[in-house]
């Protein structure tokens, strides 16, 4: 049997977290041709700059979602482990 890990250790990120982290990469990096333009101007900003600024809070949001998924799966695991041992 594998020795039990000490509490507070970080595990490998879940698949859900990995997919959520992929979203900012798609938005900020791989889709440049879609948003590299001035029009439509939003809030006085050229569209590309608006898009990049918009994705600052959205990136944090994605990572927050990824983090809570990871935390959830860890707490479920921890509970199961507790239930198994007498």
């Amino acid at each position: 049997m594998e020795p039990a890990r000490k509490s507070g250790l970080v595990r490998k990120p879940t698949l859900g977290a990995r997919l959520l982290a992929l979203i900012p990469f798609l938005a900020l990096c791989f889709t440049v041709p879609l948003w590299n333009r001035i029009h439509p101007v939003v809030l006085g900003l050229p569209f590309n700059l608006f898009w990049l600024i918009l994705w600052i809070p959205l990136t944090s949001l994605c990572m927050w979602a990824a983090y809570s998924r990871d935390r959830k799966s860890e707490s479920v695991e921890a509970k199961t482990a507790k239930g198994d041992s007498p």
């Binding site: 977290a17 982290a21 900012p24 990469f25 590309n48 990049l52 990136t59 990572m63 983090y67």
Partner: peptide, 26 residues
Amino acid sequence: APAFYIMGYMSLACVASYFFLPQLWE
């Protein structure tokens, strides 16, 4: 506009760090 690359990578560097800094810390 090439200057915009800085905004792109700063956020994404944090995203990437999520997948190796905690493991390195352990």
